Simulated scan of single mutants.
Amino acid sequence: MSVRNILAALAAAFTVYLSARALVITEPVPQPTLIYAAFVFYQFTTLLCIFWRPRRRPDARPPDAPGQRSDKLPMWVALLALGNAALVPLALAIGVGEEWRTATFATWYLGGIGALMVVVVVRRRPWIGWIGLAILAVESMIFMGPGPALALGLVGSVVWVIVANLVRYSLDRAARDTAQLAQLQRAASAWQASQLVRQRERRVQVQQALAVAGPVLARVVATGGLLDVDDRLEARLAEGRLRDELRGPRLLDDDVRAELERARRRGASVTVLDEGGLDGLDEDSLAVIRHQLAETLRNAASDRLYIRTSPHESIAVTVVGRSGSDQGLSDEDAVDLWSEIQHP
């Protein structure tokens, strides 16, 4: 049995205890039927307020905010409880007559209606609870007088409703704080996971950099910086490979790397930039893009090659080639290669 069911059973037992005095009529009253009818009406409404749970659809999302919880009392049930606050005191006042309105079997509604308004407040209808309490106070003072009403249970009902509102507010605030804390914990976990991924990527990049630049650096140290033409070419190629690995790793595979190195060996200047647009693509799509990029580079003869990813929804990569001197030439005259690789 869940905690909610245990609390609901205790609330039902308490309301039965408060209203059971209506069944023990020790004096002759004008209309006992009204007393029993008020008791039945009260018990029916109270049990409905305590145990009613709206049926949730299977596809319904769980509520996020405390005020949107599924335990909120339906309005028609709340209005039925409000009707109890108005009708039960009236029925008892008429049923017992003016002589017995302060008798034990005629004053149970002071605590009973107060308990019912507490249930209404707990079920997230606080304004209905306050209105019902006000109706109870007015009618009880009219029927039995302010002094007897306050002495026989009205003060306790007011205190119960106030405490119920304070507890409900505190629980809602605690729930909001808990939800915010859980959200912050999820954000912190996501940040930590992203940092771990970035650390792994940096380690991989450092290993690649060492693999690419290590032999060249060892050669520089061994020769004291006096490199011949071939060594200078290898150093320039190593620098280009290192820049490619850092700036556009998602564009690279063995074929693309080979074509980039071939272009640099023939003297071309190559710039590779991954500026977004490939996020979310699977490996098959990236393989298609890399294959087309390798084919484009294989047929390129430009002196300067610019390879950039594109944020456009249909274009994945743009390859631009320029040759010759730019002096006296417009941008269109200087461009001898323009290729756009579409998204697969």
Rank of each mutant, 00 (worst) to 15 (best):
N84L: 08
A85T: 08
L87S: 04
L90T: 04
A91P: 00
L92E: 11
G95D: 07
G95E: 01
V96W: 02
G97H: 03
E98D: 15
E98C: 08
E99C: 02
R101V: 03
A103D: 01
A103T: 02
T104W: 04
A106W: 01
T107H: 05
Y109E: 10
Y109C: 00
Y109P: 04
L110E: 02
L110I: 04
L110H: 00
I113S: 03
G114P: 00
G114A: 03
G114L: 06
M117Q: 15
V118T: 12
V121F: 04
V121C: 11
V121A: 08
V121L: 09
V122K: 03
R123S: 01
R123G: 12
R124A: 15
R125Y: 09
R125K: 08
W127A: 11
I128M: 10
I128T: 11
I131L: 00
I131Y: 01
L133D: 07
L133R: 06
L133M: 15
A134S: 03
I135T: 03
I135G: 06
L136D: 01
L136V: 01
A137E: 02
V138L: 04
E139N: 11
M141L: 08
F143A: 04
G147N: 13
G147D: 07
G147F: 12
L152H: 06
L154H: 00
V155A: 14
S157P: 05
S157Q: 04
V159F: 15
V163K: 02
V163I: 05
N165W: 04
N165T: 07
R168Y: 13
Y169S: 14
Y169E: 15
S170L: 01
L171I: 14
D172T: 14
R173S: 09
R173M: 08
R173Y: 11
R176F: 12
D177V: 14
D177C: 14
D177K: 15
L181M: 13
L181P: 10
Q183G: 13
L184H: 09
L184F: 03
A188L: 10
A190P: 07
A190Y: 01
W191T: 13
A193L: 05
S194N: 12
Q195P: 07
L196M: 14
V197D: 09
R198L: 13
Q199D: 14
Q199G: 06
Q199A: 10
R203S: 15
R203P: 12
A209W: 09
A211Y: 13
V212E: 12
A213T: 09
G214Q: 08
P215D: 13
V216G: 11
A218P: 02
A218G: 07
